[in-house]
Simulated assay, not measured.
Amino acid sequence: MSEDQFTRLFKYMQERFDKIDSELETKATTEQVDKIYQTLDGITDRLNTQESEMAALLVQDREA
């Protein structure tokens, strides 16, 4: 491999790695995704509790 070919290959690979690094910077980390799941789980729990309370109130209202 001549020096010119090596230089072109090196520049090409450097551009590819730069693109990959750029893409990786825009993706969420595992910790960020875990935090989103935890937040969604909390919201789901609150909605389940609210639905249960609303059902209990409706039963009480019908009995009254």
Rank of each mutant, 00 (worst) to 15 (best):
A28I: 07
I20T: 02
K27P: 00
Q14F: 04
S22P: 01
S52W: 06
M54H: 12
D45Q: 01
E23P: 00
M54E: 13
N48M: 15
L24N: 05
D34E: 10
L58T: 10
T29M: 02
V33P: 00
K27Y: 08
E31Y: 06
I20H: 03
Y12H: 12
S52L: 05
R16T: 05
T30H: 15
T44F: 11
D18Y: 11
T39C: 14
T44C: 11
E53T: 03
E15F: 03
R16K: 04
I36A: 07
I43K: 13
Y12K: 11
T26R: 08
T26W: 03
K19P: 00
A28T: 04
E15M: 06
V33M: 10
E51L: 08
G42H: 04
E51Q: 10
V33Q: 05
E31R: 01
K11V: 12
F17P: 00
D18N: 06
E23S: 11
I43T: 15
K27H: 10
I36R: 10
T29L: 06
L24A: 12
T29H: 05
L47Q: 05
D34A: 15
R16V: 14
R46P: 00
E15R: 02
R46H: 10
Q50M: 09
D18T: 09
E31F: 00
E23T: 06
E31W: 03
Q50T: 15
F10E: 02
V33L: 08
F10R: 13
D21A: 02
G42E: 13
Q32E: 06
S22G: 00
Q50N: 15
R16S: 02
K11M: 12
Q32M: 06
I43R: 01
T30L: 13
Q14D: 03
I20D: 11
D18H: 05
I20F: 10
D18E: 06
D21V: 00
A55H: 01
V33R: 00
E15K: 14
A55D: 11
Q32D: 12
T30N: 07
A55Q: 15
V33N: 04
D34C: 10
T49V: 14
D21G: 07
D34W: 03
Y12I: 08
Q32P: 01
L40A: 11
Q32H: 09
R16P: 00
D34K: 09
F17Y: 08
M13T: 09
